[in-house]
């Protein structure tokens, strides 16, 4: 149970997906016109996130490494469909106001990111609580932003008039431009905190590791990932710092021990896999090693990643 509590705290505070990691910005901007919408979107995402985390974790030994992204997407999309149908049936008003953003939960970076960085390498119960924690953190953040925008934009909170009589609502906060302004302020605060922590010598890497730094990271976290990620193709997913290191390492070793295959010296076969050409080498020989190597390489290549990502630096 202690582990579960730690996961909840992690999602709500330490790695809050919106305030700290800056993931899933599309829905954050789009649906936070009111506190109610923000809360609805947050809770919907939480349900999908915890269920998909649970199931991906249960299936983690069944899903082959190379087709994991399509597998994740199918699991996530199924839950999104289920939740969408439930909303249509029982909360039609909320469903209408969230509209197209409900099916778009499928491409929310947070969900695919957690599946990849936590659920795929951890047991079901912690994964479930990781999903709940992250979902609660997301709901909390969306409700805060929604409440702020609703208060300034309409002078209300959860639909109840709150501001004094003379208050003239700043309508723009309820509309599209207001969302950009609110997010800009949020990121500016994050930057300030980050700079202060940097100066004080405290750890700061986690803050804003998603969209605020360089949006291409976000695309690697989930929004725009390669569909079929051949275990050793030129591009590897970037992991969220911290949350993966301990979780990911033990698994390949354990698997190796289970299948009783000792680790062999690097062979030409491996090189072939690296360059993205598969199928020529005898598969049965290649298979056990590839799973191991694929994961290790992925972790090792975390840094080299940025060559691919940084389109602008390339040109200088």
């Amino acid at each position: 149970m202690n582990k579960a509590g730690e996961r909840l705290y992690n999602g709500l505070v330490k790695e809050n997906p919106t305030f700290v990691l800056m993931l899933g910005m599309c829905p954050t901007l789009a649906v936070t016109t009111s506190a109610m919408n923000g809360l609805g979107m947050g809770l919907t995402t939480m349900v999908v996130l915890s269920l998909s985390n649970l199931f991906i974790s249960l299936l983690r030994r069944v899903i082959p490494d190379r087709v994991r992204i399509p597998a994740f997407i199918v699991v996530i999309a199924s839950f999104v469909t289920v939740v969408q149908l439930l909303l249509e049936a029982y909360l039609p008003a909320l469903n209408k106001s969230l509209g197209v953003y409900i099916p778009l939960i499928v491409v929310n970076c947070i969900i695919l990111g957690r599946a990849e960085s936590y659920a795929y390498s951890n047991p079901p119960i912690p994964s479930l609580f990781d999903g709940i924690g992250m979902g609660l953190g997301f709901s909390f953040a969306l409700t805060c932003i929604g409440a702020f925008r609703e208060l300034l934009g309409a002078g209300k909170l959860f639909g109840a008039a709150l501001m004094p009589e003379g208050f003239e609502p700043i309508r723009i906060f309820g509309q599209a431009p207001g969302a950009f302004f609110v997010l800009a302020m949020l990121v500016a605060v994050q930057n300030a905190v980050r700079n202060r922590r940097k100066k004080a010598g405290k750890p700061y890497e986690k803050i804003g590791s998603g969209c605020s730094e360089d949006c291409m990271n976000c695309s690697d976290q989930g929004c725009t990932r390669r569909f079929y990620d051949a275990g050793a193709a030129e591009k590897k997913p970037v992991r969220q710092p911290g949350s993966t290191a301990q979780g990911k390492a033990p698994r390949p070793v354990q698997k190796q021990a289970e299948s009783g295959i000792q680790r062999k010296a690097p062979r030409p076969v491996q090189k072939q896999a690296e360059s993205g050409i598969q199928g020529k080498a005898p598969k049965p020989v290649q298979k056990p090693d590839r799973a191991v190597n694929g994961k290790k390489e992925r972790l090792a290549q975390k840094q080299t990643e940025f060559e691919y990502i940084d389109l602008d630096k390339e040109e200088k």
Partner: peptide
């Protein structure tokens, strides 16, 4: 300003563009 370097100023720009597109 230092805190607004990077993303925040871009988001503010996007917000102003959004007003124009309204």
């Amino acid at each position: 300003p230092k805190a607004f370097q990077g993303m925040p100023i871009v988001l503010l720009t996007a917000g102003l563009m959004a007003i124009a597109f309204v």
